[in-house]
């Protein structure tokens, strides 16, 4: 029954990932609580609309959600960017329009942003 080495010396000298598989029970509990909360947010909205009868008026509101969410994600993201981001976004739009291929559009966007950031 050898006494365990004081772990601090080993860790501070080498910083080996010797504890790579360590699972602190408190940390695990916090992570699982984060997971539970996230699942609630992912499932909560659709649970609500599956259990509450929506009027036609409310359904009309829900029908604009997809586009509105997309714009609400994009707007501030692009507003925080600069000419490089705007140019690359325009490139994605253009390629999407011409080819209807999401893969090509993404490649154009990522390639474009790298190039534009290097140039601008």
């Amino acid at each position: 029954m050898a006494e365990p080495n004081p772990p601090s010396t080993v860790l501070t000298v080498f910083e080996l990932p010797a504890d790579a598989f360590a699972l602190d029970s408190f940390v695990v509990a916090v992570i699982l609580a984060m997971a539970a909360i996230t699942v609630l947010t992912k499932v909560g909205g659709i649970w609500l609309v599956r259990h509450v009868e929506l009027s036609d008026r409310l359904e009309a509101g829900f029908s604009v959600l997809p586009g509105a969410i997309v714009i609400a994600v994009l707007g501030p993201e692009l507003a925080a960017g600069g000419p490089a981001e705007w140019g690359a976004a325009g490139l994605v739009l253009l390629v999407m329009w011409r080819t209807e291929s999401i893969l090509l559009a993404l490649c154009a966007g990522v390639g474009g942003i790298v190039a534009l950031r290097a140039v601008l």
């Binding site: 997309v70 993201e77 692009l78 981001e85 994605v92 739009l93 999407m96 999401i102 993404l106 990522v110």
Partner: peptide
């Protein structure tokens, strides 16, 4: 930029 690119394509 990938997230923005996916969302532009979707828009």
């Amino acid at each position: 930029f990938i997230l923005a690119a996916v969302f532009v394509a979707l828009a």
